[in-house]
Nucleic acid binder design. Structure first.
Lengths: 248, 248
DNA sequence: TGCACTCTTTGATTTGTGTCAAGGATCTGT
DNA sequence: ACAGATCCTTGACACAAATCAAAGAGTGCA
């Protein structure tokens, strides 16, 4: 595959966990050696908190495997998920000393971390890194804004349908398929995590999933294994035109 | 004032509308001539739509004066505001051909536009521009995520109090004041725009503003002129610790 | 001065979702 | 096989916010 056609799925294109490379299709610089020197791996078990909002954070990282969530909370415990970290996603903000969100592993997770200061130095030497990070951040911003429409204006049923559609699309793109027709996938989240994602309670999530099942929009095997007989139908329930490509 | 002390309030530090400069405190490159060649001004009246979601967008721009909103809509007309553009804010995404949101002027507005292609070329020649844009985008992402917490988990009363606190803080920082004690400012939005911001109906917005007035949290003169006797009280109503610095 | 228009307030009623509560399903380790 | 956990489902009820409806306030214009 020519470099032009490489889909840069992460900031650091390459084949982690073997090795990260600060080089992408448009960038000739190769900071592989630097990265090898400053990187280290960290493992977390499902349920563990990677970092608390406000804690000092002297690294940036990319997810190698597993799933983590970014959440914000109010003092009385109400919590809202504001981001979902999937393999290849980047976390941490160059130029900020402390974490702005709680980061929690929802499955066992392996993260590839880089000490922040040398990473920032490398960014300055390698301008394309900043451009790639900008692209990724703009994508995240778009996803956040799509999510705001969901939180502010969609009904509980539409919210659930939207979430299912997002997971289905993400799953399809991992398998290099198109999100259409009959689709089968696993939900990587508990009912409670879905509720925190959608600004609902876990009871409402459960009820709406049951309703979608009753109405034949989805089929369920166990609690997590979902079959969508007709993706278009699901998109319709989600209140989206069937193109929209929002994810995190 | 030495360059070091210039507060880079916009991507293009300097004194627009006289002239934009692609130079900031940390950046020695000066692309003034390039910018002068590719820039042009556009004026819109209150209520006019600057660009519709999906339209071809061959420019990027920064707001010189006035206020605009970014909104997303569902097919049946439900709309959610996803961003607020205030003077010095940047709009448009390098590397994308069409607009992702409706941009609507809520007051008369003057925008300084740059043709996109030459702007992108300049970004490549001037790496600090990309870094500055990255910083701004990360700030926007943080604001969007704070907003998600509001949309998903706050009550109507807390939402209104939060919005008032945001406007008060923004106003204070424009006047180089601290947001504390007694504060007086104007609301730049109609009740309907506030509703679209907060994921409420305009009736609920009106009722909650009346309630806050009745309870002495705010005083109102006319519909737009607000006095907050005690900023801490307002912050408390908003469900935030009094530090939190979220704005758009 | 009064009409037309937009924006806002307030009231009555409905409804979607939250809250509280009980019980079911699945899994683990003993 | 059983106890204990965790996660999930379902029901009854309460309540916050939406909806429907009407009227008030402010502004520009004839």
């Amino acid at each position: 595959m020519p470099l032009e056609d490489v889909q840069p799925v992460s900031l650091l294109c390459g084949d982690c966990p073997i090795r990260h490379r600060a080089v992408c299709a448009r960038c000739e610089t190769d900071e592989l050696d630097t990265l090898e020197q400053i990187k280290y791996y960290r493992r977390f078990e499902a349920g563990q908190t990677v970092i608390w909002s406000g804690d000092k954070m002297d690294f940036v990282a990319s997810v190698v495997s597993g799933i983590a969530t970014l959440t914000q909370t109010l003092e009385d415990g109400r919590t809202q998920m504001v981001g979902l970290l999937l393999p290849s996603d980047f976390v941490g903000r160059p130029g900020r000393a402390s974490a702005a969100y709680n980061v929690t592993a929802t499955t066992d997770i392996l993260m590839c971390c880089f000490h922040k200061k040398p990473f920032e130095d490398m960014m300055i030497r390698t301008p394309h890194i900043a451009q790639r990070l900008l692209e990724m951040t703009l994508d995240e911003l778009d996803a956040a804004r799509e999510w705001m429409l969901l939180l502010g204006r969609k009904t509980a049923r539409e919210k659930i349908a939207s979430l299912l559609a997002i997971v289905a699309r993400r799953d399809a793109s991992n398998k290099l398929q198109l999100p259409q027709g009959r689709m089968i996938f696993d939900l990587p989240l508990t009912r409670e995590a879905m509720a925190d994602y959608l600004g609902l309670t876990l009871e409402t999530v459960s009820r709406q999933i049951s309703a979608l099942k009753r109405d034949g929009v989805i089929e369920l095997e166990g609690k997590r294994h979902v079959t969508v007989p007709d993706m278009d139908r699901l998109m319709n329930e989600a209140g989206e035109d069937s193109d929209g490509g929002f994810l995190v």
